[in-house]
């Protein structure tokens, strides 16, 4: 499977990555090469094999329903690019 510039544009859109005209060609080429490597998977018949999502396949543990996290908003918002009155600021999305 090889990707063209339109494919890269579509994937970049899904991934929220801005890609300029020049980069489109370079990404189409390197991503196609990586997909070429990945497609070696098709040499093996995996019919009837159960997918494995986790090395230990252990179920998630349960804990008592107790409060373990407390409000540390001021501490965490020190790292935020833009805040006001305890709120994260982003460009306006509703007219």
């Amino acid at each position: 499977m090889s990707l063209d510039r339109a494919d890269v544009e579509r994937i970049a859109h899904l991934a929220r990555l801005e890609v300029d005209e020049q980069e489109l060609t370079a990404y189409a080429e390197t991503l196609s090469r990586i997909l070429g490597l990945i497609e070696q998977m098709n040499a093996v018949d995996t019919e009837g094999i159960a997918p494995m999502s986790h090395p230990l396949e252990a179920g998630l543990g349960f804990r008592a329903d107790e409060v373990t996290e407390f409000d540390q908003r001021e501490l965490f918002q020190v790292n935020a690019p833009s805040v006001q009155a305890g709120l994260y600021l982003v460009p306006k999305v509703i007219e």
Binding site: A12, A15, L35, V90
Partner: peptide, 26 residues
């Protein structure tokens, strides 16, 4: 907002990280 996301991620990540994000997204 759209541009904020896509420019932030385009400028904040390097080429190899972007490649892997795109492979994974695909």
């Amino acid at each position: 907002l759209w541009e904020m996301y896509s420019k932030t991620r385009a400028q904040g990540f390097g080429t190899e990280v972007k490649r892997r994000i795109m492979i994974g997204t695909y």
